[in-house]
Every structure is written in C-alpha cells, then in structure tokens.
Design a protein around this nucleic acid. Sequence first.
DNA 1: CTAAATTTGTTAATAACCTTTACAAAGTAA
DNA 2: TTACTTTGTAAAGGTTATTAACAAATTTAG
Lengths: 412, 412
Amino acid sequence: MRLSSSTSSVPPEPPVEAPPTRPSHLRQANARGLLRLLREHSPCSKADLVRLSGLSAPTVSSAVAYLESLNLIEKLGEGESSGGRPPEMLRFNAGHGYVAGVDIGGTRLRMVLADLNGRIMTQWATQFTDRQRTPKAVCTLMRDGLRKMCQDVSTSTKKVLHITVGAPGVTNVDSGIVLSAPNLRDWNSVPLRAMVEQEIGLAAIIENDTNLAAVGEHWRGSAAGAKDFIFIALGTGVGAGIFLRGQLHHGANWSAGEIGYTAISGRSRQALSFSSTGQLEQSIGGLGIEGEWQKLLSRERRSSSGGLARLRATEIFDLAVDGDRLAAQVVEYAAQILAGCIVEMSLTLDPEVIILGGGVGSHPELCRITEKLLVRNEFAKPQVRASSLGTQAQLNGAISLSLAATEARLLT
Amino acid sequence: MRLSSSTSSVPPEPPVEAPPTRPSHLRQANARGLLRLLREHSPCSKADLVRLSGLSAPTVSSAVAYLESLNLIEKLGEGESSGGRPPEMLRFNAGHGYVAGVDIGGTRLRMVLADLNGRIMTQWATQFTDRQRTPKAVCTLMRDGLRKMCQDVSTSTKKVLHITVGAPGVTNVDSGIVLSAPNLRDWNSVPLRAMVEQEIGLAAIIENDTNLAAVGEHWRGSAAGAKDFIFIALGTGVGAGIFLRGQLHHGANWSAGEIGYTAISGRSRQALSFSSTGQLEQSIGGLGIEGEWQKLLSRERRSSSGGLARLRATEIFDLAVDGDRLAAQVVEYAAQILAGCIVEMSLTLDPEVIILGGGVGSHPELCRITEKLLVRNEFAKPQVRASSLGTQAQLNGAISLSLAATEARLLT
DNA sequence: CTAAATTTGTTAATAACCTTTACAAAGTAA
DNA sequence: TTACTTTGTAAAGGTTATTAACAAATTTAG
C-alpha cells in the first residue's frame, strides 16, 4: 500500500519519513548518533559524549559498550584529568573497515583506499592499454588494484566495505548504469554497478567523475562549508557538478551540469545534437584555448618564433603570468566566456561559490581574471576559487560518498 | 558546543539529524506518523491505521485517543462491516485550525483562508490606493482581510494558525525580510515577518511570489509529482521559481531564479546593474512583446489598421491563434528566446518539467510553439506545460507552505 | 599529609513506551 | 442458532532511558 503523493491533499512532505517506530529503534538511533559525535570530536570520553548528546550517563555507557562489542570503538586509555577522576578516552575505530575510490579516466585508472576516517592509506594507478578499456576489463583491473592496495596496508580485502567509481560520462546513479561516455569507446548503457558488485563483491556507487570532484572539493577542498556551489571542470571537455543544499543535484535525466553545450554570449546557437561538440566546450575546452592562441599568433605572424605554436592551455596561462601580451589576451578571452557562463548559472542558481577545476580550469591566472570580470556586476557574482585538490578531487569525492554510504550501514 | 562542519573529517551528513532521543519522542513521532497516514487515507479506521503503520493495535488506540484529546481527529461513526464488527471511522479534523495565504501584487492585495486539509474556504482582495502600499499599511490591510475572511466562515481569528505572505521581490525567507521589491515603492529591507507577526499575531513565512507560484503548481497544479522543475513567470517582469528535490531552491543570496537579466542568444551582454532592466525581461516581458508587435506592424506599414497598434501581449497571442501572420511571428519571436533560456537552464539543471506561468507566459499558444522549438534538440528538452492554476498559483503555494509549517507544529 | 571537592563512571530503582496475549463486542455466513 | 471474522480494549511482559545513589580516582585546600 504505497502512499500516493500526487493525489493527496496534504502539502509536500518534509524530508523526514515516519517509519514504524519501535523502542529498539531508539537504541539504534542513539548508537548512531553517539558514533557520529565520537567521529566528529576525535578522541573523547564518555562524559564528553554525555555532554554532547544530552543523553544520560548510563545510556551512553551502554551504547558505548554496544559499539565496542561491534569493534567500532577503541579505548585509548586514560586522558588528562581536569580536576577529578581521569577520563577513559575513546576513539572511533577507523580501521574497522576500509572504503575504495576509483577514477576511470580517458587514459588511466586510478584508485585509492581509505580508512573509515577518510584518511587515504594508499593509492594505485595504471595506464590503459587499448583493449583494457572495455567495461569488463576495467572491472578486472579494479579488482587487481584493490588487491594490491590491500596488500600495501596488510589488510584483508574482506575489510573493504564499499567502493565508489567515477566514470567520465552521464551516469544513472540509482541504477548504477553509465549511460554514455564519449571518451571511452563502446561505453553506452553499461551496467557498471552490477558488474562491479559481481566482480569485486562490494556494494558500489557509480557516479559521474565531475560530480565526484565536486563532492571532493566540498568535503575537504575549496568548497568546504558551502551549501550551494558549482564545480566547473575545464579540461579537454567542459562539465559542471551542481551541488545544492548539501547534496549533488543530478536532474531528471542524470544530465545536470552538462554545460559543454551552453551557448556563448554574442553567438547564436543551433539545435543540440549528441554528435556535435558544444559551443562552450569548443571555445574554452583545452583545444579551444590552444586554437585561440594559434589564431592570435598567426595574426601577429609570430608563428615562426620558436616552439610556441603548439602549447598546452596551461602553458599558455603560465606565459601570461610571465607577462606575455598575447597569452594574456588568451586568458582574457577564456575568462570572458567563462564569466558569461558563470553569470548565467548564477542568475538561475545563485550559488555561494564557483570552484574552477580540471586540468585547464584550476590555473590560478584564469581564476584571477575571471573573478576580476565578475566584480563589475552588481549581482550574480559568486566567489570564484580554484580547486584545491586538483587531480585528487574525484578520488576524494569517491571516498566521501563511500563513507557516507558505509556510515548508514555500519549500524543496520 | 556547535558541531563544526567544515573542519570535520567526516563526510557530508545525510539530511537525517540525530537529536537526543528519549522514549517520549517515540510517542510524538508515532502520533505524527499516524496523523499523516490519516490525512493521506481520508476516512479510515483504527484497524486500517494498524495495517498502514505496522504498529500494534494498542499503540494505535492510545495514539488516536491522544490525538482526539487534542481535537485533531474526528469520529465519523460506524463504517461498512467487511464481515465482522463494523469499524469506527476516523477523519483528520481539518477544521481544527486554518491557515491564510497572501499575495502582495503591484496593484492589489489578495488573500485566501484554507482549512488544514488545504481546502480554500474563502477569499478576499482589495485594490491598493497609493498610500496603502507602504509595508505598514499593507499589514493593516492584511489584518482587516483576515478578519473579514474569518467572519465569512464564522470562525474565530484565533483558530488561524499560520500565514504565508508572497512579496514581489527578493526575499530572505530565514529572516523574513523583503530585500527589494522594484514594483513597490520604498520596499527595501522591510522586516515583513516581524511586522506581520506583531500586527496580526501569527507565525508567518515571507516568500517571493514567483517561488510561491512554483510551490502552488507543485502542490496542486501542472507540476504535481515533479521532483525537479522550473516555474517561469512571464508578465510585466520575468522571473523563475527553482524547485529541486521536492523543495524550493533559494540560493546563497535569496536571488535564485532572477532570470530577467539572462543574456539572449546572439546578443552580447553588459555588466549587470540593479538600475537597468535585464535583456530577457526587455525582450519577452510584456512590454518587450508588445514592442516587437509594434515594430513588425510599422515595418509592414499596417500601423494604420484599426486599433491594433496597442495590444496587450495575450491579445497578440490570441490573434496568432486566429491565424494572423504577424502575430504568429511575434509568438515565434518570444518562443525562440524563451526556448533558448530554457535550454540553458536545462543544460545546468536538467529539470523534469518547465511550467510557464504569469499573465503572458501561461498562454497556450506560446507554450505550444516553445515546446515545438525544443523538440529539435536531441537533449535538454524538458516537458513544457502551461500553469494550470493561473493567478491562483501564488495563493495556493502560500497555503501549501503554511500547511507544511503548521503540520510540523501541530504536535510539539 | 590528610580531608574536601571534583570529575568520571557504574549500579539499582523507576517510569515510559511498545508488543504480545487474552478477551470482549458486534457484525456476517451457514 | 452457531461458527467465523473483524474490530477494538485490557492486562501482562519486555525494552529502553532516566534519576538517584554510589564507587573510583584524581586535584586542591588546609
């Protein structure tokens, strides 16, 4: 008997559900709450937990005993006395299990293993050979990588509780299916979660890699503390991770943030099609920026001058920092377009912060000029910050999601 | 001792909070849950509630007695027997209290009163005289209107539990301050909630009127059942209500959805300033559309033809439906710009539905042509629907928010 | 150096809540 | 009229959390 939401005359329900509530749920809820407090207040005593939770001392005692029996809490021995009996310090047992994060890139596979505090214990990476890019082969590589990493920290693979995989394409997180990944040949409607769960035997989350980077920056990067922000990844491709009200926003077809096709101020747009490249991506994707550089060079007839003709976007930006006039024009060009895009999104979403990431986007000079352009506006000018995690953002985001998923299941 | 969210090494917390959980909370939670079930399953018996909730019969009995003592439940007498003792039917007592909704327009004040089922009992409206547009005067009008409506349904004003006020401007919902309302003279940083709560003595929510319309359409309009959608209000002004994951999205500065300043494909933009009108609003606001009509007319030298020169936007659209070629061009013009705006927002947010509302926007012809333009795209083509509540959307949204706020406080 | 005060933590008694079991009430079906 | 079904209440029992009392271990005061 499902609750009908659309026909009901009752207003939109708040996020709180009301499940059948029995006394035993109390115990679980309290244990969960105490565990969370313990994780947030590193080493602390039962007395601290009593103060933090507002629960009575006997309740805390009994819950701690329960958590200890589950091996989720460690005793650290006596702490400093503050004028009385010294407290027995407790700590969340971060080694109770581990979680893994994976980034499937266009050319390589990267993995990390972290403990339940999110501390990254070890990493592993490998370049793809051509035939290793099939979904099946990637799963096998993941299994091998996981084994290696477990050996590194001398733990059993059985202690790994969850894995989050970032894929470079539109991803249905609910079903765990990668709907399309243009950079990977033949990755259409790949049921990656089912494959991972079968091959590796782990609960898995499949996410878009840019979304993972956004989560990473929110967890321990430039976006820490922001409730609403947009992560813009500028590299070969252009995409965004939309983070609202403390969570990723995916949209109705899992394609929120696919801003590569965004129109550019001053140009008209055509119909959108999968086969074409988007205007924004053409303009300020890595290739677009390098193209602009070459255009300006040839216009100035400097194409003869040394090996400057074929520079990567970041190298051009570096030149601009060194004072090269032409390179500065390229930065201005990119920043202008980027700022236009940011304004449009800000008018709609009014985010607190914009994080620029990706190989091209995280360059501080681009960030500086973009922000300078935005301050001319009287509104729709969010803070602009460069990614602080760089290429590690995705992997950190993967760990963050795995931790959240694990946390919910540590106490059934 | 506040929990620090940014320095913590724990992943972003799920929306579930873990408050100190005492046994008495169980009772409250169960009562709340049962009341919700009762509201969703209109008249039903205790036995039905037992089945729906999964709780035991004595618990349901006791909770029902409790709710009845609070006058939140009505007994309807015996129902149909299904082969045994006939059940005693129960119903949520929608007359236990009332909630009010207000729409502050540019020229008039409208109010509605609804019972706790959201059934609208009566309405009231008044045109502003010039001096009645001050915040203080509006509050007085609201008090008078509320009294009138209470008399209409012969109830005491004391039974009104909550009021939600829609203002035509940027609104800080947390503090209840109207930050700016261009259509109302001298409405800058008006602490409207404090004023309402003092003048009328009711808990109040202050919201942007377009946001309220979005909530209304979600509650009992074209957007019913949609998790993510955008309500676009096209009238004299142009604005949007952003509705994501079942809730309004406000943004960091309460200005999410201020899309009037959005750039238009093919034109370049200048710096944004409060004093100027936005490109989008200039183009497809009511005045923009009427201007386009006149432009085309004069170009065709038909300006002499009757009184056609000065038509309202909706009248032009009506002409297009009747087959007028020039009017059809105006519709095409507006739809083209609107579709461009929708595409941009869809690339970012991927909403399920776009609702077109407001005096100009809800015209079915505009809706039809806009949708036609969108289907040329291979993606970023949400469903486009006309508002089904029309001018009543805001007021319905106000009632919806008041109900939600009340529901949370019916059981302390 | 001893006693009081303080802080930490446990044990025992009490109250609140939900559930199972038993049973009463009021109908339908044979 | 009897058996069966459904609805609803009452009593007993089991968890859970709280308060109160107390034990343990240390600092502070005299």
